[in-house]
């Protein structure tokens, strides 16, 4: 059974069957990645463009690796999207790229809705690799895959997303995906970092990190953006670390096993204490491998729809 949409723009409205299919397909590719020859000929002859208007080496490399493991031809296009009027418009750029007979486009952009905009101006399959503070579906899929790997299921699990939810594309995708899969989702962070009306998505809001630890099976801890304007949303890094940072002490106090995910890179001593970060080392490396497998699954499922 194929996916119900030929683009992956986000996880909002993506049906359970599709997510299930992507996660199951990920398992297959996860096995491929364990083989001595980590390559399959599935997308031979397909061209995929990685269109990155924002710096994100990790995500780009993960996609590029996934494309190469599937034997697709991968082309990278990077540009800064910070200027509005200077130079070529996105529409012109896209038209030029498409003239090169491209099958799929992986796009990362600082402006929300850009992947959707691309579907109006070109015929390729579009995969959102992060658009502004909107969605980052493959990151959420890999988070969900990692959780499922741990617990064997998603349904009924309690997952809390911790940190700057308002300025995170990972948060929204996780919320949409996890709720669709039957998990119970909450968010925890300073109130200035919790977007308005988030409850309407069916999530609980928690302002006390201890409560979040106590109540949940999984914490998905977001990276606090120290460099951007997000810094204006809390008084100081010290205060953030003190009241929302996850430390061994806190974990011990609440005396229970909890799975912690982090999309990386970690700000040690801010959202996670150094000790907690060290303890996560293995999981984070595993997440990186899962990331490649998830992206292989998405590329494969979309690429073979054509």
């Amino acid at each position: 059974m194929p996916l119900s949409n030929r683009h992956l723009l986000g996880l909002e409205g993506v049906p359970k069957e599709d997510i299930q299919l992507i996660l199951d397909t990920t398992t297959t590719f996860r096995e491929v990645l364990e083989r001595p020859i980590k390559k399959v000929p599935t997308l031979q002859g397909n061209t995929v463009v990685n269109l990155f208007f924002e710096n994100s080496t990790r995500t780009r490399i993960s996609f590029e690796l996934a494309e190469k493991r599937l034997s697709a031809d991968a082309v990278n296009f990077s540009s800064s999207s910070s200027s509005v009027s200077k130079g070529e418009t996105l529409k012109d750029t896209m038209r030029n790229i498409e003239a090169m007979k491209v099958d799929m486009v992986v796009v990362r952009h600082s402006a929300a809705g850009t992947p959707r905009f691309l579907t109006n101006i070109c015929d390729s399959n579009i995969i959102n690799a992060g658009d502004g503070i909107h969605e980052h579906p493959t990151q959420a899929l890999l988070d969900m895959y990692s959780i499922r790997e741990k617990f064997g299921k998603l349904e009924g699990l309690k997952v809390c997303i911790v940190g700057d939810v308002a300025h995170s594309r990972v948060a929204l995708s996780n919320i949409f995906g996890l709720i669709t899969m039957g998990a119970k989702v909450s968010v925890c962070g300073p109130s200035t970092m919790i977007p308005r009306n988030i409850e309407e998505l069916g999530v609980d809001v928690i302002y006390d990190i201890d409560e979040a630890i106590q109540e949940n099976d999984v914490l998905n801890v977001l990276r606090i953006q120290l460099e951007r304007k997000a810094r204006e949303y809390f008084p100081s890094i010290r205060e953030y670390a003190k009241y929302f940072g996850i430390t061994e002490e806190r974990l011990e106090k609440n005396g229970k096993d909890i799975v912690i995910l982090h999309p990386g890179p970690i700000n040690r001593g801010v959202e996670l204490s150094a000790a907690v970060a060290d303890g996560l080392h293995q999981i984070i490396l595993q997440q990186v491998t899962n990331g490649v497998a998830v992206r292989m699954a998405v590329l494969y499922l979309l690429g073979t729809m054509n």
């Binding site: 909002e12 658009d131 503070i133 308005r196």
Partner: peptide
């Protein structure tokens, strides 16, 4: 406008 839709769309409100 800041509201549920801006949260959903990830657009600055």
């Amino acid at each position: 406008n800041e509201g549920f839709n801006s949260t959903l769309l990830g657009l600055p409100p």
